[in-house]
Design a protein around this nucleic acid. Structure first.
Lengths: 252, 252
DNA sequence: CCATATCGTGCAAAAACGTGCAGAGTCAAG
DNA sequence: CTTGACTCTGCACGTTTTTGCACGATATGG
């Protein structure tokens, strides 16, 4: 295996898994750990990844070289995305929110899945082009610079046309009394509009969101059907949101 | 085995496998490693591949990771894009088509331009995020896999809301009698719809499109206000499309 | 604080490299 | 047909790169 080939492999692995364990990779490739470590060190020197004890993680968002923030894949988000991707059934019409976790979901959808994905994130839409059998619908509107999703009255009006079977929504705050919230009002409106039309609503949430409250309400718990969190955070979520009639899915 | 034959073989091998191991190839072909290495060196010098220790890899790493097919930026397309970008005035509302030339236009818009860009290409939309002052509107609809733009009835209906000042449209055929044409019927419909609502329509065309005819009509010449071609092709364009009342802009 | 895993560096063997050179083949002028 | 210029190929040889291991240093988790 070529040196360069190996490095490419490492980078793609990083993108796919959100982290690299040197030992693991060396075993899988049948090479010494030293070689892998050397590669990681070199890639780190060029800023393609961040070296950490035991392996490597993606570079910090701040100094990401490329202007298109494809989103940093932390292991937890990958885990959630992968699990949620497996929840999509063939033939369904799915709404997929923007955000890095949703992007992971998109990445991990089964390659041969026949389904329709509706999204207001151009990033997610482009990612979905890797899946030949999917139909992709983009919800138009004003592109919000920060979160890279379309928002605004036009987007809301456009959403009126859809009745998805299931919607995967991101949120930044999940609180037993305060409900599900997010930090941007325009985004909150879009999420509300989606939830109002969809059959089943699932919230994608990494652990730091549990118990947090953001400024704009997306929906009360009554409208939420489920929550997808990493397995490690599942217990905490179940404790926090007991008797809210909301399925907690621990992604492992 | 001929030298040229061998090189062709190497390139096709590279395309097929994503990498070349010199030793392996030399064994398979029954030639010395030196010969293969020499070939690789020469191909690298001409930029057909990238030489690495042990063999070679494609120049632009077949980075299958991301669907960033921003298309090939030929010098001509860059030239056209840059010139057309300079035609946009502050405050205007601009429709920008999909395609590689339009993407170049997006890249070369002045950094401090205040304007609104409407586009049905998620690629173009993402590119525009590099420009802080632009407002970006995405036209939604079914995402066409091949050309990476939204199309279909929903897109057409949505376009009804916009009255852009100016539209930059791509086309694959420009013929004096046959008018302006493109190779995909859905795309043609979207372009028609845009042209019907826009103040001024400009066609972006690289030289090989001049005099060509594709299967689906976008518009007759009467509806086209101008043509942006590379300077080298401007004379040919002026000869071909004389007295069609269409401005020929030679991009230099 | 200790046990353990991981890290970085120096080192030596192996692999791959580039260069110079010579033999074989090609081609055109004489 | 012969000659000489030219190209292509394989080999020899010294150089550079890569890789795995040894060893002491450092970080991690209880």
């Amino acid at each position: 295996m070529l040196n360069h080939e190996r490095k490419t492999h490492l980078l793609s692995l990083l993108e796919k898994q959100g982290s690299i364990v040197a030992k693991e990779v060396s075993r899988n490739l049948g090479l010494s750990e030293d070689t892998i470590r050397r590669d990681l060190r070199e890639l780190a020197k060029v800023g393609r990844l961040k070296r950490v004890h035991g392996g490597a993680v993606p570079v910090a968002p701040a100094n990401a070289a490329f202007p298109f923030r494809t989103g940093i894949a932390t292991p937890e988000k990958v885990q959630i995305g992968k699990y949620a991707a497996a929840m999509v059934e063939p033939g369904q019409v799915v709404f997929l929110d923007g955000g890095t976790t949703a992007l992971q979901l998109a990445k991990h959808l089964p390659q041969r899945l026949d389904a329709t994905i509706i999204t207001h994130s151009p990033n997610v839409a482009l990612q979905l082009l890797n899946h030949d059998r999917l139909a992709v619908e983009i919800v138009g509107g004003r592109l919000l610079r920060h979160s890279i999703v379309t928002c605004g009255a036009a987007t809301i009006a456009w959403l009126d046309r859809y009745r998805p079977d299931i919607a995967f929504i991101g949120a930044t705050g999940l609180h037993a009394e305060q409900g599900v919230t997010t930090g941007e009002s325009e985004e909150a409106e879009v999420k509300r509009a989606v939830i109002a039309k969809t059959g089943s609503t699932l919230i994608l949430a990494s652990s730091e969101k549990l118990g947090a409250v953001s400024s704009f309400e997306i929906a009360p718990w009554a409208e939420i059907d489920g929550l997808v969190v990493a397995e490690a955070a599942a217990k905490k979520a179940k404790d926090l949101f007991v008797d809210l009639n909301c399925d907690i899915h621990g992604a492992k």
